[in-house]
Amino acid sequence: MLQGSESAFAALVDRYKDRLFRLLGRYCRDAIECEDLAQDVFLKVFRKLHTFNHESQFYTWLYRIAVNAATDHLSRASHRRLRLVDDDAVLDRGSGDDENPANPLMTAELATATRAIVDSLPEKFRTILVLREFENLSYTEIAQVLQIQLGTVESRLFRARQRFKEAIERLHPELLPAGFTPTPRGGTR
């Protein structure tokens, strides 16, 4: 593979492309954007394959490149269109009926609403939630992908979930069970 043969590279792409698309799909709005980004990531992998040192799993190395590419993409995109990274700007794009907790949202709307909250979290919280909740990476794998300490993984994950919980409480309290303990305001900054 490290010799760079085309068939070996094609095999590598075939093995990891589904996983990569699933990850990048968390950062992209549409399939074309996702495909462009995935192509960029694989071309970077192709260029940098000789620097892979086998100290970690290949997919954690791939994820590292992908997460960096995705966050770069997001920061570029934020200049072009509304893509805020502060959770105070959570997309509250409900119809007005959403303001009534007694009126439950449909499942698809719930998915859209919760996704909007995740998308609006600061990048580092969003990424750690994506890696843990959607990609099911262990703490160790997340630490390798993000090149941070295990303790940082734990604390960042804790804060990310707290931020998500605060936003849910504020915007969609109907998603939480009755008697839910509200998060103290400003407690997770």
């Binding site: 492309k17 799909g25 995935a38 849910i168 998603l175 939480l176």
Partner: peptide
């Protein structure tokens, strides 16, 4: 409560999987 938050997060992850052409 933590499980409820995780349930809401799981909703965010549902149905957003993109597939390569």
């Amino acid at each position: 409560e933590a499980q409820s938050v995780r349930g809401a997060l799981a909703m965010a992850g549902a149905g957003r999987s993109m597939r390569p052409p």
